[in-house]
Computed example of a mutant assay.
Amino acid sequence: MVERRTRKPTATRLTAGDWTAAALEAMARGGLAAVAVEPLAARLGATKGSFYWHFANRDALIEAALQRWETDHTDAVIALVEAEPDPLARLRTLIGTVIESTAIPGADAIELAMLATAGHPHVAAALARVTARRLAYTARLFEDLGLPPQEAGHRALVAVSAYLGHAQLAHATPGLVPGTPEQRRTYVDRLIGLVTGP
């Protein structure tokens, strides 16, 4: 009788997406300096060989992680907002979604990490694309409310600046920003009133 040998199950192979998700988590915790191949490999239970299977070098990983950040934190929000048929409801959904996200512990960490490392060439390029896209999209929402393009652009700048300021305050001094969902809804109502008023 021949003894059958059973194969050990092989570990799940990591994808490029696994590495980019880990890189974004590292950035959120420790900024761009935290994106290092060996610690990420250890965190993922992988070898450096797995990393080099997917990426030529650390810069390629950073580029992929920044692209994922752009997709997850801008494209996904825009898709959510676009589901609203009414222009004012779209603006309210946008502002409400981004303000509410600052209440989730750590949710704004990646955004703040990007701003803190804005001088890095890769981050600077991604921030420029993301900020231009966010401003253009928000301006379009104001145009949909009937405002002329120049005024829509000014109000979009105010709205995006309000979000970034709120995110910074929520991170640095959480006790100074609205703490409950009801308080945040009231805050969003006031912000909508300010940016859509005469």
Rank of each mutant, 00 (worst) to 15 (best):
M1C: 12
V2C: 12
E3N: 15
R5P: 09
R7Y: 05
P9V: 14
T10H: 10
D18S: 09
M27W: 04
G30N: 04
G31V: 04
L32S: 04
A33W: 02
A36P: 04
E38N: 13
P39F: 05
A41T: 06
A42C: 07
A42N: 07
A42R: 14
T47C: 13
K48L: 00
S50F: 01
F51K: 14
R58Q: 01
R58G: 06
D59N: 10
L66G: 01
T71Y: 09
T71F: 11
T74G: 08
V81L: 08
P87S: 03
A89W: 04
A89P: 01
L91C: 10
L94A: 06
I99E: 04
I104F: 06
D108A: 13
D108Q: 12
E111S: 12
L115P: 02
T117A: 15
R129Y: 00
V130F: 07
T131P: 06
L135D: 00
T138L: 08
F142Y: 03
F142G: 07
L147R: 12
P149I: 05
P149M: 07
A156D: 03
A159F: 01
S161Q: 11
G165N: 05
H166N: 11
H166W: 00
A167W: 05
A170T: 08
A170C: 11
L176V: 11
V177L: 07
P178S: 00
G179R: 14
G179I: 04
P181D: 02
R184H: 00
R185E: 06
D189Q: 13
L191N: 00
G193T: 14
L194W: 04
G197H: 02
P198Y: 05
